[in-house]
């Protein structure tokens, strides 16, 4: 009994009661909707849904598009983050605000903006179509562009924060050892911000995987070409809510598996 009270007192002193309550409410806020999804799942018909060609096509397309979007975001977003973190130039804060705008912009508006830019009659879309023969709307490439547009800011701000918090004297040390700026970037800077790179890429990928509004607005919805999982879920909700629940679960399972896998692999499950 004495032991019990002592351990309880220790618990209280190490974690304020209010914090524990609020944290519990916060966790419940996430868990209860998931629980609702799980409990309402028509498990018997779930397996049939899961194996259907349309679901597999949507899943395949979702993975392809989200991974491609993450790759593009890495290629373009890391230099952007580096520029924001390391170069001082007039208009930097404005440019930074513009590039993270897709985080607050309703994705559907983002999709319309993309149409106005890369659509058939868009600012550069017309030129793309006539000179290069590239059509983005209604194509898988368009779905990837839409996902990149919405998801890349997550990578940019994460990597920028990593670059800002890193000790730049390591870069100085590398230069005094004869490393060119390019070598410094590849062999010192990027390895040192690797946790931020991974976290940013994972966030970006997760956002791309769940992307709906910009994709359906810019790329449209066609099974096998532009119908990603979230689009399939939304449409299934119209006709067959059971199927929608199963599709959501598939999406959930895939993202959970990847996130947990990455965590164990790279972020060190400590």
């Amino acid at each position: 009994m004495a032991l019990l009270t002592r351990s309880r007192r220790r618990l209280q002193s190490s974690a304020p009661f209010l914090i524990v309550i609020l944290a519990g409410a916060g966790a419940a806020f996430f868990i209860i909707p998931l629980l609702g999804l799980l409990l309402r799942t028509p498990w018997t018909s779930a397996w049939q849904q899961f194996g259907s060609a349309e679901v597999l096509a949507a899943l395949r397309l979702s993975l392809l598009a989200s991974v491609s979007a993450t790759a593009i975001a890495l290629v373009l977003g890391v230099p952007l983050a580096w520029t924001f973190a390391r170069l001082a130039f007039p208009g930097r804060s404005v440019l930074r605000a513009l590039t993270v705008l897709p985080m607050v912009l309703p994705p559907v508006v983002g999709g319309v903006a993309l149409l106005l830019a890369f659509g058939r009659r868009g600012l550069v879309g017309g030129w793309l179509a006539t000179t290069l023969g590239i059509h983005l709307p209604f194509t898988t490439a368009g779905a990837i562009i839409a996902e990149t547009f919405v998801a890349m800011p997550f990578l940019v701000i994460t990597v920028e924060a990593g670059l800002r918090s890193m000790d730049t004297r390591f870069e100085d040390a590398a230069r005094t050892l004869g490393a060119s700026r390019w070598t410094v970037l590849w062999r010192v800077t990027l390895p040192l911000v690797r946790p931020s790179l991974i976290a940013g890429a994972v966030l970006c990928w997760a956002r791309a995987l769940g992307e709906f509004g910009a994709t359906i607005t810019f790329a449209g919805n066609f099974p096998g070409t532009t119908q990603t999982m979230p689009l399939a879920v939304y449409l299934a909700l119209e006709s067959n809510p059971d199927a929608a629940i199963v599709l959501s679960l598939v999406l959930l399972a895939v993202s959970l598996a990847v996130l947990i896998g990455l965590r164990d692999r790279w972020l060190g499950a400590s």
């Binding site: 004297r169 100085d172 040390a173 005094t176 390895p191 040192l192």
Partner: peptide, 20 residues
């Protein structure tokens, strides 16, 4: 002359060994 081309070795105060 840029840093990387100077024949100079600098041992930093906290050594700055690359942790990775």
């Amino acid at each position: 002359v840029p840093t990387e081309q100077r024949p100079i070795g600098l041992v930093f105060q906290d050594y700055l060994l690359f942790p990775h």
